[in-house]
């Protein structure tokens, strides 16, 4: 056998193996999707058989019972505001951290860096929010997500801004522009690709996270998507897995649709975060 055809066979075997592996990813998600159309008896087999009858009405029931619209709105509100705050204050701070090479700015850089590694202290933070009377609502969670995500975002922005030449800022400064004006009119427009990276990183991270809402939301009406999904599972996991699957499917849909339309940005965004960080 020539080495060419040997290579060809090797490639075919590799593709076959990868197809099988990709099924390992797809099958669990397919069980969820198919299960969401079944009735409560049929779903308990948890298999890949197509539903005997496609129960589309699982979705409106779950949508109402699971209060998904409200949860979606809550998640949107929390994610969008905390992401915006984080992007704004981090890029602002990073502009100075990237430009100054003084001892203080290097210290601040490493100081922020600590926040990317160590886990937060939960109960003292709750006490702090109680003391200033905002514990349990939207605002404490938005502030907290911002505080938790600023370190990593600063890290990314600082690295990115270091790659932008200083010449522009200096000429603007000579013409009398303040630091903020330089940031606003010169740096910010150049941050587009870094903003997309940080946006995707923070959006998926906050959207999917459950630990913080568990501790910091005490009003059932303010539940985020992952929290509402878990509570819904607690209510129906014993009796109606078709509803649970329908709920999971609906909760998965928004981010997966976003992912399908923005694959490139997602993959490069989530990984650039790691590589540059």
């Amino acid at each position: 056998m020539s080495s060419k055809s040997k290579e060809q066979i090797g490639r075919i075997v590799l593709i076959a193996v990868l197809v099988l592996l990709s099924l390992i990813i797809i099958v669990p998600l397919l069980i969820m999707l198919l299960g969401s159309f079944k009735d409560s008896a049929e779903v308990t087999a948890f298999d890949l058989k197509l539903p005997k009858k496609w129960n589309f009405n699982n979705f409106p029931i779950v949508f109402k019972e699971g209060k998904l619209l409200r949860a979606f709105g809550n998640s949107m509100l929390i994610t969008i505001i905390s992401t915006s705050i984080t992007i704004f204050v981090s890029s602002l701070a990073s502009f100075v951290l990237a430009r100054r090479n003084a001892r203080l700015s290097r210290f601040l850089y490493y100081f922020f860096f600590i926040g990317t590694i160590i886990p937060m202290q939960i109960m003292p933070t709750i006490r702090l929010f109680s003391a200033i009377n905002i514990y349990g609502g939207y605002s404490n969670i938005i502030i907290l997500y911002s505080a938790l995500n600023i370190p990593f975002s600063c890290f990314l922005y600082t690295g990115f801004i270091k790659g932008i030449p200083k010449v522009l800022d200096e000429s603007a400064f000579i013409e009398g522009a303040s630091t903020f004006k330089i940031y606003l009119y010169i740096i910010l427009p150049l941050l587009k690709s870094c903003n997309i990276t940080v946006l995707i990183l923070l959006f998926t991270g906050i959207w999917n996270e459950i630990n913080i809402p568990l501790y910091f939301l005490n009003n059932p009406l303010k539940r985020t998507m992952p929290l509402s999904v878990y509570q819904f599972f607690g209510m129906y996991g014993g009796s109606n897995w078709n509803y649970v699957f329908a709920d999971l499917t609906l909760a998965t849909l928004p981010i997966v649709i976003l992912f399908i339309f923005m694959q490139k940005q997602f993959i490069s965004g989530l990984t650039e975060g790691a590589v540059k960080g």
Binding site: I85, F88, V89, S90, L92, A93, F95, V96, L97, R99, R100, L104, S105, L108, F112, G115, M120, T125, L128, I143, L144, S146, A147, L148, I150, P151, C154, D169, E170, F173, S178, T179, F180, I182, Y183
Partner: peptide, 18 residues
């Protein structure tokens, strides 16, 4: 030219709440 004032908002969030 690069005033530390711009670091303050991020620092406030990070120091007070983390």
């Amino acid at each position: 030219i690069y005033s530390y004032a711009l670091v303050i908002p991020a620092l406030v969030f990070f120091v007070i709440f983390f």
